[in-house]
Lab assay of single mutants.
Amino acid sequence: KEQQNAFYEILHLPNLTEEQRNGFIQSLKDDPSVSKEILAEAKKLNDAQA
């Protein structure tokens, strides 16, 4: 469930490039146990690119 939530949120971050988004999603698939950390990174990058 946590992985699904992170997946959904990353898909809807407006400021990520397609490449960045795909990278985060691939990381989620590779290691779902760190989905919280991956989501935090994605949000940080999204904010930095706002």
Rank of each mutant, 00 (worst) to 15 (best):
Y8G: 05
F7M: 13
R21C: 03
Q4P: 05
S35G: 04
Y8A: 07
A42T: 01
K29W: 13
I25T: 07
I10L: 08
F24L: 06
E9Y: 15
K29T: 12
I10A: 01
A40E: 13
P32S: 04
S33I: 09
I38T: 08
I10M: 04
L39K: 03
P14F: 15
E37Q: 13
E18H: 12
H12L: 11
D31Q: 10
K43L: 09
E2S: 04
Q4G: 09
E41Y: 15
A6V: 09
T17I: 02
I38E: 01
Q3W: 15
K43N: 12
Q20A: 03
L39H: 03
Q20V: 02
N46R: 02
N5S: 13
L13R: 00
E41F: 15
P14K: 12
N15W: 14
K29A: 08
H12N: 09
K29R: 10
S27T: 07
F7N: 04
I38W: 03
A6H: 07
L11M: 03
A48T: 07
N46L: 01
L13P: 00
V34Q: 10
S35D: 10
K29L: 09
L16Q: 00
N46D: 03
P14M: 13
Q26S: 09
A50P: 07
K44H: 09
N15F: 14
L13K: 01
A42C: 02
L13I: 02
N15Y: 12
E19M: 12
L13E: 00
A50Q: 13
V34Y: 11
A40I: 12
E18A: 08
N22V: 12
A40R: 13
T17C: 02
S35Y: 15
N5F: 09
S33G: 07
F24C: 01
I38G: 01
Y8I: 06
A50D: 10
N22W: 15
E18P: 11
Q26H: 12
A48W: 06
S27L: 12
N5G: 11
K43S: 06
K44P: 01
D47R: 14
A50H: 10
L16T: 00
A48G: 06
Q3V: 05
D47F: 14
S35E: 10
I25N: 03
P14W: 14
P32V: 06
Q49K: 04
Q26I: 12
L16D: 00
Q26K: 05
T17E: 03
E9R: 14
Y8N: 06
S27H: 11
K1R: 04
K36A: 09
E19G: 04
E9F: 15
E19C: 06
K36C: 06
D31Y: 13
G23D: 06
I10H: 00
